[in-house]
Deep mutational scan, measured.
Amino acid sequence: MKVIFLKDVKGKGKKGEIKNVPDGYARNFLFKKGLAIEATPANLKELE
């Protein structure tokens, strides 16, 4: 799953980066803790 990092996550990504991460990791950790959001076309446009 492609995500946009909202905060730095040690060993995974830095704020503003767009990366592919495992689906479970994104849903169960990154999204729940507010560390990242899904890289949807709308979210990507908002980032620019």
Rank of each mutant, 00 (worst) to 15 (best):
M1H: 06
K2W: 15
K2F: 15
K2G: 06
K2S: 12
V3A: 01
V3H: 00
F5R: 00
F5T: 00
F5K: 00
L6G: 00
L6K: 03
L6H: 02
L6R: 03
L6V: 09
K7D: 06
K7T: 13
D8W: 07
V9D: 01
V9R: 01
V9Q: 01
V9Y: 04
K10W: 15
K10H: 13
K10F: 14
G11E: 04
G11W: 07
K12R: 14
K12G: 13
G13I: 08
G13Y: 13
G13K: 01
G13L: 02
K14Y: 12
K14W: 09
K15Q: 10
K15N: 04
G16M: 04
G16Q: 03
G16P: 00
E17P: 00
E17R: 02
I18N: 02
I18R: 03
K19M: 08
K19V: 10
K19G: 08
N20A: 12
N20D: 14
V21D: 01
V21K: 01
P22K: 10
P22D: 11
P22S: 10
D23Y: 15
D23L: 15
D23S: 15
G24F: 14
G24Q: 13
Y25F: 10
Y25R: 05
Y25V: 07
A26V: 08
A26I: 08
A26Q: 06
R27Q: 12
F29H: 11
L30V: 01
L30T: 00
L30S: 00
L30K: 00
L30E: 00
F31A: 01
F31W: 02
K32G: 06
K32L: 13
K32W: 07
K33V: 09
K33E: 10
K33H: 15
K33F: 15
G34L: 08
G34T: 04
G34F: 09
L35I: 07
L35Q: 04
A36F: 01
A36Y: 00
I37N: 02
I37F: 04
I37S: 04
E38L: 13
E38V: 07
E38Q: 11
E38I: 07
T40I: 06
T40M: 05
T40K: 06
P41Q: 12
P41R: 09
A42K: 12
A42N: 12
A42Q: 14
N43H: 09
N43E: 06
L44D: 05
K45D: 10
K45M: 13
K45F: 12
K45Y: 09
E46R: 08
E46A: 15
E46G: 13
E46Y: 11
L47G: 07
L47E: 07
L47H: 13
L47V: 11
E48T: 13
E48G: 13
E48H: 13
E48V: 12
